[in-house]
Amino acid sequence: MWRHIASNAVTFLIVALFLLGGAILWGQGQYRGEGPLAQAICLKVDRGSTMSRVSDDLAKQGAISSPSVFRIGADYEDKTNQLKAGSFLVPENASMEEIVSIVTRGGASSCGTEIVYRIGVTRATVQVRQLDPSTNRFVEKASFNPEEEEAPAEYTRVRGESDTRYRVALAEGVTSWQVVEELKSVDLLIGDVSEVPPEGMLAPDSYEITANDTRAQLIQRMMDAQQRRIAEVWAQRRDDIPLKSPEEMLTLASIIEKETGVAEERRQVASVFTNRLNQGMKLQTDPTVIYGVTRGEGVLGRGLRRSELRRETPWNTYVIDGLPPTPIANPGLASLRAAVDPDETPYIFFVADGTGGHAFAVTLAEHNANVARWRQIEAERANN
């Protein structure tokens, strides 16, 4: 009888081990296999939340098939106590293993709401936007000019949320003075900037910031980024360009930046200035004259006067030969590249063509005809 009992016990143990092994394999497959999420979601994890609460939330949103397997897997990987607060983008069909990694690895939130402080050439704006997980695109929720408008309720609401992210976005072509002035109104930042950085030495880009970052630290990040770009682009320059130093490249790039907002034109515009420098012609570009009037402190807001075109300043390229002594704005990476790799064209003239771009010309007669067409367009617009 005891032999029979022992035999049954062994059989039972074998079956139990087999079932346990099968359960483990099934659990591993569930944990590591493709998840059921049909469309990406933004998962918000509040401060003080638990893995149990997160697993229930994921199950309700159809991101995981089993909250218990999710929790067991997180515990097995020793990540249960590593849960981070924030808003995290969970891609479609993400496995439980991938989701556990997403919510425990730390770093900035990858979705949710952003407040972007935009510093533009003519105005500054504050934009509240939210990532749509289904398209991976941001949707604007509110926008206002802090100098002219009161902050909307949406801004005030998300400004106090723990998972809101913040950015300062610097447009190509802004001046260093504009950047310093506009950073004063970014209330997330602290501290003062002791002096305006050298013109051209701030890299236009988007910079993530956090509460109590200092303005001086952010300025230094912008300067470091621009210095890296300058070194990288100068190292890739063509041998035949009429530029003797990285400083001259930066100055020419700033002029290109101010002359065209059309990306496809940058190298053509660069070719005009390169041809003029090679031929010993004056650059004769209005943005340099404007800089001589404003010194980069604000927008001129009107057309240039004849007296200003004739006035001798270090930046008036209708009067001086060659490049001005400093950049006239902060150029972006594309304009830096255009300065050292211009198109090969015979052009030495260009003028606005009414579409936002320019009409290029080789001879003065062609240029005068282009100017006449532009003036006609201006007159027609003025009458409408």
Rank of each mutant, 00 (worst) to 15 (best):
M1N: 14
M1D: 12
R3W: 03
I5Q: 05
A6R: 15
F12C: 13
I14L: 15
F18D: 09
R32T: 04
P36S: 11
K44D: 01
V45E: 01
T50Y: 00
K60S: 14
P67L: 08
I72K: 01
I72D: 03
T80L: 10
Q82F: 08
L83M: 04
S87H: 05
L89D: 01
N93D: 02
N93V: 01
A94T: 02
M96L: 05
E97R: 06
V103A: 01
E114D: 12
I115E: 08
V116C: 00
R118E: 14
R118Q: 09
G120W: 12
T125D: 12
R129I: 01
Q130V: 06
K141H: 05
S143P: 00
P146K: 12
E149V: 01
A153D: 09
V158E: 07
D163G: 01
Y166H: 14
A169T: 10
L170D: 03
L170G: 05
W177E: 04
V180K: 10
D187W: 05
L189D: 05
G191D: 11
S194D: 14
P198H: 09
E199S: 07
L202C: 08
A203F: 03
P204M: 05
D205M: 12
Y207G: 04
I209D: 13
T214L: 10
Q217H: 11
Q217G: 14
Q226F: 07
I230Q: 09
A231F: 08
W234N: 10
Q236T: 07
R237F: 09
D239E: 15
I241R: 10
E248C: 11
M249R: 09
T260H: 09
V262G: 10
R267V: 12
Q268Y: 05
V269R: 13
L277N: 03
Q284T: 04
D286F: 08
I290N: 03
R295P: 02
G298H: 10
R302V: 03
R306E: 13
W315T: 14
N316E: 01
T317A: 05
Y318G: 02
V319Q: 13
G322A: 04
T326A: 09
A334R: 08
P342T: 00
D343M: 14
D343H: 13
T345R: 11
I348M: 12
V351D: 05
G354D: 04
A361S: 15
T363K: 07
E366S: 12
N368A: 03
N368E: 15
A372S: 11
A372L: 00
R373K: 15
W374T: 04
W374H: 11
R375D: 04
